[in-house]
Design a protein around this nucleic acid. Structure first.
Lengths: 129, 129
DNA sequence: ATGGGGGTTCCAGTCACGGGAAGGTCAAGG
DNA sequence: CCTTGACCTTCCCGTGACTGGAACCCCCAT
């Protein structure tokens, strides 16, 4: 399989797949003409990576998870630890964003949104809250 | 005021303040020795920027908001528009993160987290959901 | 004179790619 | 045989909003 087919099958852009090879996440073979040749196990790996990335794991997390995936003697505790650390990050981010949203929501509600210059949003940013 | 004092007053790292000058958000004067000299209006601007950034506005949004802030003839509608667009982005991000968190939460709950290799997290990532 | 705590510039790195240039390869059609 | 067009290759630059660090200057106190 060439990179275009793999891209279609996995939904990952060809650029991304090349990048993943660059950083050693996947190691396709090469044809005589220099084209990458992907085996089914490569495609499987890429699907794994795509799903992990979709869950927000960093590339380094993905590397760790892949290693665990391929290690038959792994302990599921190690996987869970990575997942929990990541979820903590996500929850922290959600909390941040919720705080922003709440503040913004109040400010937006308080703003007339007409052609006059008075604006509680700018007042708040300017420090006269 | 030198940059260190401004940094203390605004809570912004000196590096960040220099960066804001670089991209034209603030224009402090210079002393004869080359040191930046910040007037109170510069400090005020930096506080404005700090608050806007804390609400998650991009630098470009900040530039726009600052321009509106300094324009006495602005229409509050323009400010509100920027704020609403930003809030939409935030809500989209929250939705994404909530979806990730929910999926992760289920997977983490399902994982024994012991010394055995069986792991529903890896199974899911591997495509055997 | 020396030490320490300011300040300055500039360059490189972050993260996970994306855009685009310049060029090689392959299969189909005229 | 030639061309066209769709592939593929590498390489380099840009993203956003900074952060770290090197190398150097300035000023005051001891």
């Amino acid at each position: 399989m060439n990179i275009g087919d793999v891209s279609n099958q996995t939904g990952l852009p060809a650029k991304t797949i090349r990048y993943y090879e660059d950083i050693g996440l996947v190691k396709p073979l090469r044809d005589d003409n220099g084209y990458r040749r992907f085996r089914s196990q490569d495609v499987h790996k890429l699907n794994f990576l795509g799903r992990a990335r979709a869950l927000g794991f960093t590339i380094e997390d993905c590397r760790t998870l892949m290693a665990l995936y391929e290690d038959e003697t792994r302990a599921s505790a190690d996987v869970k630890k990575v997942a929990r650390a990541h979820m903590a990050q996500i929850e922290a981010k959600i909390a941040d964003l919720n705080a922003m949203r709440d503040t913004l929501s109040h400010l937006i509600d308080a703003c007339a949104g007409d052609d006059r210059p008075d604006c509680p949003i700018l007042q708040d940013l300017g420090g006269q809250a």
